[in-house]
Amino acid sequence: MKIHSTYMAIVLATVIMNAENHECKNYVLSASDQSLIDMMEHYLHTSRKEECPPPIKTSNSGVTYVRWGKKSCPKGAEIVYTGQVGGTQYGYRGGGVNYLCLPNDPENGQHQSYGNNQVYGSEYQLSSSMKPSGWSESMADKEVPCSVCYQKHRSTVLMIPGRKSCYKGWNSEYNGYLMSDHNTHFRRDFACVDINAEPVDNKNGNEDGAVFYPTRTKCGSLRCPPYTNETDVLCVVCTK
């Protein structure tokens, strides 16, 4: 590009010089001369423009994730909506295996008479002998909240089971405990529930649904070390 630009500049200078050295000082450029000069100027202008770096644009990209067990998002993240956890009832063979973050302001459909109830609420299933370290037994049978969060200028989100901190180069959104359904129920996704989880409200009734149980490790096929037998499974949600 520089070679072409230099060549075109020489051609342009030559045309102008020849015109100025013409015997007739009161010369008038011919249409072809003016056309050539205009073409050279346009070429040089556009070639110089291409060499300039483009302006920096502010990126609107980002990632979303669900913060299970909390009504708010971590500092620095925008809240898309807050809601309560739902999903298929724990004893059903069919249906989805994932937990859902259902918004608190739904747009409800028409009433139907067929029998295929799929979307239930969710409760913490805890007891004095089965609860994450530091949690109160009073959370038992209370409904689980959730919030969908948006983190700007990030391109990926990752939940790491078995850790409470992110690896180098990653940003921690929140950490907590890995929870899922009971091992005697039908399979459910694992979810990273915030370490400072809270209930939807103070309602206390054993209505089940898509329930959350704490999980723990079991050594054997799981190598110990590095893991430890029968301990809380920690987790962290990271973005980058």
Rank of each mutant, 00 (worst) to 15 (best):
N26H: 14
Q112V: 15
G91Y: 11
Y65P: 04
Q110L: 07
R67N: 10
S59T: 12
P106Y: 03
H22R: 13
G86V: 04
N117P: 02
V28L: 07
Q110D: 08
S61D: 00
L36Q: 03
A31V: 14
A19D: 02
Q84M: 14
Q112N: 07
W68R: 05
D105S: 10
G62S: 06
S113E: 08
I10C: 00
E41H: 01
A31R: 11
R67K: 15
Q112T: 13
T64V: 13
P54K: 10
N117C: 06
V85G: 03
Q118D: 05
N60G: 07
V97Q: 02
I56G: 02
N104C: 01
S30E: 06
S113Q: 12
G69E: 05
C101W: 03
H111C: 06
V15I: 14
V85S: 10
N60Y: 13
D38Q: 10
L12T: 08
G86L: 02
C52V: 15
G91C: 03
Y114G: 06
A77K: 06
V66T: 15
H111P: 10
M17K: 05
N60M: 06
N116A: 14
G95W: 04
G69T: 13
E20P: 00
G83V: 10
T14W: 04
G109R: 08
D105P: 01
V97C: 00
H111L: 13
V85D: 02
G115K: 14
N117L: 06
